[in-house]
Nucleic acid binder design. Structure first.
Lengths: 262, 262
DNA sequence: CAGTGGTCTAGACCACTGC
DNA sequence: CAGTGGTCTAGACCACTGT
């Protein structure tokens, strides 16, 4: 019979107004914060917690689901409940679309991940002509049809980002942009070759909990939000030439921006 | 005896591998997405769902907790479970720290909220001299002590943001920056008057689920992540003169940035 | 007061994991 | 196989809301 590590978890306070399952969650959270359970460590099993606290199993499970909702732990069927490991974080710098970064051969994602020592992959590439949603159409100035480029990015086998680029069809059809591999420098380099010299990008950032489909494609643990980023690329004539809609696993990213003080 | 709106919710598929509580959650989610329950609407009560689906109450509660985790519904004790209303969103533009916005009297938050027709408030103002955390110290170039200005921002009575500004103590002590009201244009205007002409800001953005203390101060519904923003202000000599650590209710914000293409 | 959600019990059976 | 978490039942009592 396994025994709990002594002294890690205390006793319940029966005089407290705080619900029992919250008290248990508090004690586990504190133990994790203090490092008594390290990243990747297994928490005591539900059975052990039931015995330690003298409560029913549903109460213990309720406690654990609180911690899951906070993103502190993940449960693995048949194995146990573990302190959620913090994945390596990808830092998106504010100069990531600078023209000088486009001169090379590979895509920004590949170059950057290689440099960070990660193994990058891109999959589920899909290129379609379609009717834009209301929002995308507005951002692009109202084209009736667009070219949509969808792809998923993975780091070391783990999906971290799902992105769709939309371009006005009259601009992209029949160009390398409509090809699976648009060539060195990506579609921004191709746009410039087509005479759309890029002037600036606008990015809008939101954070929210993922929809079920996003949980699936990004293999998100519960308690992990997504960052929803919508970028619009403008050429020097002020025309919106591309909108890129990106959903990122929030625990895999830090976004960095530089703002002028003038 | 209240009766369920006919046709809104279907039946369970006993042949499906999908867990019953997930099937129920799916049906409720679909009904919400389709607008059959609008924002602020009350869902059927747990008792009604128990009767409709012929399952136990715990199963129904499990379904509802799934939707709560997704941020789709909020429950109110003694009243019911409601489709979560989308609060008005505050848009932070990339030029929000431009010098021209500092020339006026009030703080950026107040001016902007007034313009948007909201009623802004600032509370729990706290100004302290303290020892900086490792992270803050590093960002500020290693001062031994800092001035910390903490405050909470509310829109129409709802807390939306909690921010702490840190400044090297040698720079801020005895200046208006250490006063509760630093005067027109805020601390950035005062910094410039003190000879620290601002050059640019760097912002780092993360999203995650809130810690329990953040749930409390921001009165967050479950299923609402926070945006964690750390901004560093640099003067024209390249010195970091302020770090502002901000935690925002993610459902109340859209951040907008402009990136150069060069 | 009746109706609502919040907490908790004491079981049961299942599916997945590792030995 | 034993141990783990996943699902579900059928109750119980409580606290909060509105009338």
């Amino acid at each position: 019979m396994p025994v709990l590590p002594s002294g890690v978890l205390g006793a319940l306070d029966p005089t407290s107004d705080r619900a029992v399952f919250r008290q248990i969650a508090d004690q586990l959270r504190e133990a994790i914060d203090k490092g008594k359970f390290a990243e990747g460590d297994k928490l005591p099993s539900e059975t052990e917690l039931v015995e330690h606290y003298g409560v029913s199993r549903m109460t213990v499970r309720n406690s654990l689901s609180v911690l899951q909702g906070e993103g502190l732990v993940v449960s693995e069927h048949g194995k146990g409940v573990f302190v959620r490991p913090r994945p390596p974080v990808r830092r998106l710098a504010s100069d990531r679309f600078a023209r000088r970064h486009r001169e090379q051969g590979k895509s920004a994602f590949i170059v950057e991940a290689d440099a960070a020592g990660s193994h990058p992959t891109v999959d589920s590439l899909e290129i379609k002509e379609e009717r834009p949603s209301q929002d995308i159409a507005t951002r692009l100035g109202g084209p009736r049809r667009v070219l949509a480029r969808r792809r998923r990015y993975l780091l070391d086998g783990r999906p971290v980002e799902f992105a769709t680029s939309y371009l006005p069809l009259d601009l992209a059809r029949g160009t390398p942009i409509a090809e699976p591999n648009p060539g060195p420098g990506g579609i921004y380099a191709r746009l410039e070759e087509l005479g759309h010299r890029l002037d600036h990008f606008e990015e809008e950032i939101r954070a929210r909990m993922p929809a079920p489909s996003e949980v699936k494609t990004l293999q998100l643990a519960s308690g992990v939000p997504v960052i929803h980023l919508v970028r619009t690329a403008f050429d020097t004539e002020g025309r919106a030439v591309e909108v890129c809609d990106t959903v990122m696993a929030a625990d895999a990213y830090v976004l960095a921006y530089q703002l002028p003080a003038t």
